[in-house]
């Protein structure tokens, strides 16, 4: 019971802080933190989606940035054609894009799911380290593809003139945008929570522990893992759509392997195989970058050892440390 309480307290305090962030920071005349935390919430969403496959199904993908990038480019390309007033060349029907959030974010989710389906179907033939590397390979292919895709800016990327539009909401307002990000993060966390604790989730966790046995029990583990991979890809795609809006910019940098590595670090730092842990990981890593970079331009020489230290001595991640147990959510 004690453990349960401590965990609920950590989560409730965390949630209360996140909800109260805009009014508090505005009162302190530090409204800048709202945009910083929007970015953190979006990366948290990406990290939670990665944790779904990494922490629960044992699929270590080092190519998660690919879906982040694909989602961002979906939003970026649709907005690009609205600005240029031209039809999208690779789609039939002469559609001239959209800046409606429902359409463009929806497209981001659909497109990134499709990419995840194809990449996952091929990558899941391998496992372990080979899986890490084949996902990395696909992400790098997409990276180089977009770098040389001059139609959409290549390495320069696409600048968005404005954020996506939701009727009745002004996303250009940082606080509104922050709440939208937070709401989507919580919704995705809820979905993950339900998945992890469903029969489907049990099969996935079974796959992580002993895939051969799950197969012997008659489960088509390949199909289960693929579905899981697609859900994670969709989550990352949504995060990509949001990051495009947050920075009003889309570029291939999102797909570079170091970006995938950063998302993976957030997961491990926060606590792998926990639903909420990656959120703590995202907050910690991005805040640490912000704070250390203010100290010294050689901030990486501090961040590096901190990461090693966390791996060696805080094995259950920040979330496990705060809650006092492994932090298992279900």
């Amino acid at each position: 019971m004690d453990k349960f309480n401590r965990k609920s307290i950590v989560l409730l305090v965390g949630l209360a802080l996140l909800l109260a962030l805009p009014p508090i920071t505005i009162a302190m005349e530090e409204a800048y933190f709202i945009s910083l935390f929007s970015r953190i919430m979006i990366y948290a969403l990406a990290a939670v989606s990665l944790d779904l496959i990494l922490g629960y199904a044992g699929m270590a993908s080092l190519g998660h940035g690919a879906f982040l990038g694909v989602g961002a480019y979906a939003v970026g390309i649709l907005a690009f054609h609205v600005t240029e007033e031209t039809a999208i060349p690779f789609l039939p029907g002469g559609w001239a894009g959209s800046i409606n959030a429902v359409i463009s974010w929806g497209s981001a989710i659909v497109v990134s799911s499709l990419f995840a389906l194809v990449i996952g179907a091929l990558s899941l033939r391998t496992s372990g380290v080979y899986f890490i590397m084949i996902t990395l390979a696909f992400a790098q292919m997409l990276f180089f593809f977009f770098v040389s895709l001059t139609t959409y800016g290549g390495e320069d990327g696409i600048n968005l003139d404005q954020r996506s539009q939701i009727p009745g909401l002004d996303l250009a307002d940082d606080a509104s945008f922050y709440y939208v990000c937070l709401a989507l993060l919580l919704a995705f966390v809820y979905i993950c929570y339900r998945i992890v604790n469903s029969r489907f989730g049990m099969v996935m966790r079974g796959c992580k522990q002993n895939e051969t046995r799950m197969r012997a029990l008659g489960y088509s583990t390949y199909r289960y893992k693929l579905i899981c991979f697609v859900i994670a890809g969709a989550g990352a795609g949504l995060a990509g759509a949001l990051i495009a809006n947050q920075s009003e910019f889309v570029g291939p940098g999102l797909m570079h392997w170091t970006r995938s590595g950063e998302v993976m670090i957030m997961v491990i730092l926060g606590g792998m195989g926990t639903i909420f842990g990656p959120i703590f990981g995202a907050v910690a890593l991005l805040l640490m970058e912000e704070v250390l970079a203010a100290y010294t331009e050689h901030w990486m020489i501090i961040l590096g050892p901190v990461l090693i230290f966390v791996v060696l001595f805080a094995r259950r991640g920040i979330y496990g440390f705060l809650t006092g147990d492994g932090g298992r959510d279900g």
């Binding site: 270590a60 993976m264 491990i268 792998m272 590096g304 990461l307 791996v311 060696l312």
Partner: peptide
């Protein structure tokens, strides 16, 4: 550092050695 990680998950190794990259790059600089 690293000998403590042989029995760990590959991901722990990735994280720790990524930390080493940052450290050595900045040290060299």
């Amino acid at each position: 550092a690293l000998r403590r990680l042989y029995k760990r998950d590959h991901l722990d190794q990735v994280l720790a050695t990524f930390g080493l990259i940052l450290f050595f790059n900045e040290l060299t600089s």
